[in-house]
Design a binder for these strands. Structure first.
Lengths: 140, 140
DNA sequence: CTTGATCCTCTAGTCACTGGAGGATGTAGC
DNA sequence: GCTACATCCTCCAGTGACTAGAGGATCAAG
């Protein structure tokens, strides 16, 4: 288990050094061990956790949602009911996101393909995300 | 085409009033007409545009990406080459997002289902977003 | 043993909102 | 017409999630 410096973790994950320290501050990433000279030392697991955080943020999940998902992962043997409520909520959030991305995808794809043989007649990216979802659940 | 107040638009879209004004400030939403008493008046199209912005933000697209998508929609008869470059870039971003969401979805789903008959053995939400994508494209 | 990269903490700036103060305007009931 | 209360306006300050820089210590190569 050789120790990994914060800079190496940053290169490995694509997350900037100050951001890694920030995640530690807000408690998304446990405070790592330090060397005698006070430098943070990480292991492979920290890298995996940070990669998860990065992907989840990139997918539009808020820090609070990520914290919940990480908690599920940290203590998987909690009460089923609790896990179930949290997991189900995220599941439907994820399903919504997939549905909307798929709709957007097919419209953008159509444009690319039309462009291949002639001109793009029109762009309906706006229409495609209309509102069929949206109004069902409150926002925060 | 009856005029819609900013408050009505806010209720309709779920976007808060100050946020609507903010989108106008940064040029995502064109400045609407005003009444004699200086109040903003919107139409159905504004609502659709705002809904698009909301969904896109919720899916993790940055304002700049949304601006590009809206521009495609505003001037669809531009040079094919230009549309193609932009649309293709967004298409692969969208595909990445869908792939990662799908992976996350199946893991969260597994947890819900395991919870239904017994205990959740373990949670692998972190592992599932490992890194198979991620390192391919720089981040900003 | 110097030089340059990397680390530390701390503070301040950015992006995308969000909320509040202070004041004008619209609308519903008397 | 008059009061009451919601809604609008502008402007400015605060929040969440980073991001960058100052000032200084430490490490690793030559």
């Amino acid at each position: 288990m050789h120790a990994i410096s914060i800079g190496a973790v940053s290169r490995e994950t694509g997350i900037k050094v100050p951001t890694i320290r920030y995640y530690e501050d807000i408690g998304l990433l446990p405070a790592p061990d330090r060397t005698e000279s006070n430098r943070r030392t990480y292991d492979a697991q920290s890298i995996q956790r940070l990669r998860f955080i990065r992907h989840a943020r990139d997918l539009g999940f808020e820090v609070e949602a990520i914290r919940q998902l990480l908690d599920l992962s940290d203590q998987p043997d909690r009460s089923c009911a609790e896990v179930d409520v949290i997991a189900r909520a995220h599941l439907s959030e994820i399903d919504d996101k997939i549905a909307r991305l798929t709709a957007l995808r097919s419209e953008v794809k159509r444009m690319v393909e039309e462009g291949e043989h002639g001109r793009v007649a029109q762009c309906r990216v706006i229409e495609v995300l209309g509102d069929h979802a949206g109004c069902l659940h409150e926002r925060h």
